[in-house]
Simulated scan of single mutants.
Amino acid sequence: MAGSSFGTLVRLTTFGESHGKAIGGIIEGIPAGFSLDYNQIQHDLDRRKPGQSAIVTQRKESDKVQFLSGIFDGKTTGTPIGFTIENEDQKSADYTELQKAFRPSHADFTYQQKYGIRDYRGGGRSSARETACRVVAGAIAKQILAQKNIRIDAFVYQVGSLKWTGEWKSELKTISEANNVRVPSEELAVEMENLIREIRKEGDTIGGGIRCVITGVPTGLGEPVFDKLHTELGKAMLSINAVKGFDFGSGFDSISMKGSEHNDLFTTDGTTKTNFSGGIQGGISNGMPIDFRVAFKPVATLIQEQDTINEDFEAVKLMGKGRHDPCVVPRAVPIVEAMAALVILDYYLMQKAYKK
Rank of each mutant, 00 (worst) to 15 (best):
Gly259Ile: 10
Gly259Ser: 06
Gly259Met: 09
Gly259Phe: 03
His262Tyr: 07
Asn263Ile: 11
Asn263Cys: 00
Asp264Asn: 05
Leu265Thr: 15
Phe266Asn: 13
Phe266Met: 15
Thr267Tyr: 11
Thr267Trp: 06
Thr267Glu: 14
Thr268Ser: 14
Thr268Phe: 13
Asp269Lys: 07
Gly270His: 10
Thr271Gln: 14
Thr271Lys: 15
Thr272Ala: 12
Thr272Tyr: 01
Lys273Trp: 06
Lys273Phe: 04
Asn275Gly: 08
Asn275His: 08
Phe276Glu: 07
Ser277Ile: 11
Ser277Arg: 13
Ser277Asn: 15
Gly278Ala: 00
Gly278Phe: 01
Gly278Pro: 00
Gly279Cys: 09
Gly279Met: 10
Ile280Tyr: 01
Gln281Phe: 10
Gly282Phe: 03
Gly283Trp: 09
Ile284Ala: 05
Ile284Gln: 06
Ser285Ala: 07
Ser285Thr: 10
Ser285Asp: 04
Asn286Arg: 04
Asn286Ile: 11
Gly287Thr: 02
Gly287Leu: 05
Gly287Cys: 00
Met288Asn: 04
Pro289Gln: 08
Ile290Thr: 06
Asp291Leu: 11
Asp291Tyr: 04
Phe292Asn: 11
Phe292Ile: 13
Arg293Asn: 07
Val294Leu: 07
Ala295Phe: 03
Ala295Glu: 08
Ala295Asp: 07
Lys297Asp: 01
Pro298Phe: 00
Pro298Gly: 02
Val299Arg: 07
Val299Leu: 13
Val299Met: 12
Ala300Tyr: 01
Ala300His: 04
Thr301Phe: 00
Thr301Gln: 01
Leu302Asn: 02
Leu302Val: 01
Leu302Trp: 00
Ile303Ala: 06
Gln304Leu: 09
Gln304Ala: 04
Gln304Glu: 05
Glu305Thr: 13
Gln306Tyr: 03
Thr308Gln: 09
Ile309Phe: 08
Glu311Gln: 14
Glu311Met: 10
Asp312Phe: 10
Asp312Gln: 13
Asp312Lys: 15
Asp312Arg: 15
